[in-house]
Amino acid sequence: MPAPSRLDARRRRILFEHIEAYLFVLPAVILVGVFDVLPGFAAFLMSLTRWGIIYERFAGLDNYRAVLDPAGARFEQFMNSLGVTVWYVLLTVPIEMFLALVIAVVLYQGTSGRGAYRVVYFMPYITSVVAAALVFEWMFDANFGLLNWAIGLVGIPAQEWLREPDGVFGMIGSAFGLELQGWMTGPSLALVAVSIFTVWHFIGFQTVIFLAGLTNVDRELYEAARIDGAGERQIFLRITLPLLSPTIFFVLVLATVGAMRSFSQIFVLTNGGPLDTTRNVPMLIFQTFFERTAVNGIGLGAAMSFIFVLIVVAITIFQFRVLGRRVFYG
């Protein structure tokens, strides 16, 4: 082993700097390694085993086959959950984004009281999902709920909300004498109810991000446009939207991934019911792990989560490919 004195001063300093830097990152590396990276690898290995209440054996790709075999029961469950996931994204993301954008633009223009509004709109985002869900459950109550009372005021009959497995399109259709069948009946009212909660919970988050995006838009551009005689609508369409498009795109990607991975609100509000109409993929994975299939729950659930991850990643890449190009990076 060479003695320290044989290293020249520069190399010694570099070595010391490296040791110091490694010491700085070490705690984070260990923690992230053990609780994020390692479980990621482990999840993949687990998906290759038959492992339920106990570990049984290595199972190769059996679990993937079980989930992806169109004749199997697991496939049906998985596809149903995928359908729920898609509906849930469609029910939440566009509405959230539209409302948040409107609020943000209006807030940005009218300055008086902006801070106060911002505080109120952001409030739901910081509240606990479990506690807030209790409040919504109460408002959705079929017998004494506030919502049934409110829709009763405009002559709509009382609904079961979180317990209603019927599709909303089907319900609306039959109110006008149109009988829809199968998938055309749409997402269940229960899923719509969960979506209402979700929109409420996340709208402030998106508003704040949009507001930040708007603040970044150069005010001089507006001034110039006004001097050129552009109307408010033109300014919005020609300047605000294009300049905000990176933010909109970012929110879209974030909200889509977030909605696909939603769990807590569904777990608390419906636990996947009624008739599995709110059982999205994360809920199915959870149930497979923890409530059912003691025989192979861990193996199957891990396989499902990997397939799901691939789907989420594919959708994100798709968004980047198709929409990302249209984003205007001024």
């Binding site: 390694g33 990276v37 390692l38 690898f41 290995l45 085993t49 209440i53 106990i54 570990y55």
Partner: peptide, 22 residues
Amino acid sequence: LLALFAVTAFLVAACTPASPTT
């Protein structure tokens, strides 16, 4: 190194039966 560490650790983990009596 990290990957190697992860894989070995979990191969060991996954192949240990959950309970000695099973």
